[in-house]
Every structure is written in C-alpha cells, then in structure tokens.
Simulated scan of single mutants.
Amino acid sequence: MLLLATADQNRLLSALPALERDHLAHYLEPVVLRSGDILCEAGTVPTHLYFPTSAVLSILHLMENGASSELVAVGNEGMVGISLLMGGEATGARTVVQAAGHSHRLRADLMRQALPHGGSATPLLLRYTQAFMVQMAQNTICNRYHKIDQQLCRWLLQSFDRVGSAEVAVTHSMLAAILGVRREGVSEAAARLQQAGAIGCRRGHLRILDRGLLESMACDCYRAVRAEFSRLLPPAAGSRCAGKEARSWQ
C-alpha cells in the first residue's frame, strides 16, 4: 500500500476521500523514473496516466527541424495523461522525464474501473485540467513575449516548487531545449541571475540563493499560474517547505 504511505506527496491523490483513495490504490503501480526517459511519444496513445510524487515530467512540442519547446511541466501538483481523460486518446506532444524521481502510474485500460463516475475523482481531475490548460497558455505567452531572463526565473521557480528543494539538476543545453532558445542565450541569462545574487551555478546544477529576488525578477506568469492552482485545487495534505527557499505548489 505504497500509495497510502505517500499520498500527501501528490496533490491530486491526497485530495481524494479515503475510500476513493483506497479503491484507486489497488490499480496504481509505484515506479521509479529516470531523467531523460520518454514516457509517451507524440502521435501515440499513452499507455498510462502518471501521478508524480518526486519526479518532474516535461511535455514537449517537437518541430520539424528537430527543435523542441516545453509546453508545460508536471510535478507532484498534478498528473500526465489528460488526453485519455478527455477521450482524445493520442497526444500531440512528447512526455519526457525532466527530473528523476518516483511516481504512481495507472494503466490506461484500467482507468474506468479505477476512476468510476459519481465520485470525487472526476470533478477533481477536470478542475486540474483547467489549471493545466491555464499553465500551458501562460507558458506559451511567456515564451513568446517575455525576456529570456524572465522566462528562466519563471521556470526555475516552478521547478524549485515541484522538487521541494533549493537546487535543481539541469544543464544549459536542457534549458535551451525547454525554453526553445539558443544555449548561449540561457548561459548569458543564468550569468546575469548569478551576478545579481539570485542563483548559484555549478556544472549541471542551479541553486536558489535569494527566493525573493528571483520572484521580483520573474514576470507575472509565475504568480498567475500559482494563483490558478490555488483557486481550483485544494492544498496537498501534509505538504511542507523544504527549507525557507522552497515552497509546495499550493
């Protein structure tokens, strides 16, 4: 019954009433996800719904020239597999593991048995879908209209919140692919944030040094998404900050 022991690590699972959570536990499988693993390729039907607990998943749009851009990331505040819930089945984006960690997954063919109509799960997942779409739209606006420095601040704040730590493992090349910009642009933006004292950089890792400063340098997109999640979803039971620098998504 790993789900019951770690339910508060996923905001959606922890929001379910105990009886529904117990029912769902029989269908969920705990998995360990490795960074870079592809969970679903664009144009295919997902085999599972994923409910991350410590992993972070990235949903990427792929372009014909091989470039990519992150549409949205999902951590312990949500789930991946909305196309299955909405009946569309095939997804138009690639889902890849951005940060290694743990997750629970539900087989797509067992979804109707695990999430019966009439309970709390369906309206909860529909509200999450609304918040998910707001986040995707906000990220698209951010990547189109805001400076790289602001985009990087927004992405770092969201990542720090999801991993519950003041440090994330990410390279400048990975950030360039996520934001859809040149690697040189990411390196220059990271250097400016480091010079300002907001973050610290070492090979393959970025660490938050001054949360307040980082938030002041970010655009309104970060706060708008947090507000929408707070409006639509209950806070995760037992959630807590990992030190003064980090926050949970609530």
Rank of each mutant, 00 (worst) to 15 (best):
G78I: 09
V80E: 06
G81D: 06
L85E: 05
M86F: 10
M86A: 13
G87I: 05
T91N: 02
T95M: 10
V96A: 05
V96L: 08
Q98F: 12
A99D: 02
A99Q: 08
H102V: 01
H104K: 01
R105L: 10
R105P: 01
A108S: 11
A108E: 12
D109S: 11
D109K: 15
Q113V: 11
A114H: 10
G118N: 09
G118H: 03
G119K: 04
S120G: 00
P123Y: 09
R127D: 13
T129N: 07
M133Y: 12
M133G: 09
Q135N: 02
M136C: 10
A137E: 12
A137K: 09
T140L: 15
T140W: 05
T140H: 15
C142L: 15
Q151C: 02
R154H: 11
R154F: 11
L156P: 01
L157N: 00
Q158R: 11
Q158S: 13
D161R: 03
V163S: 03
G164S: 05
V168M: 06
V168A: 03
T171W: 05
S173A: 15
S173F: 04
M174P: 02
L175G: 08
A176T: 06
L179M: 11
G180N: 08
R182F: 11
E184Q: 11
G185Q: 13
G185Y: 08
A189D: 01
A190L: 14
A191L: 14
A191Y: 11
R192C: 01
Q194W: 05
Q194V: 05
Q195P: 04
A196W: 02
G197K: 12
G197H: 07
G197T: 08
A198F: 07
C201W: 11
C201L: 14
R202T: 10
R203L: 13
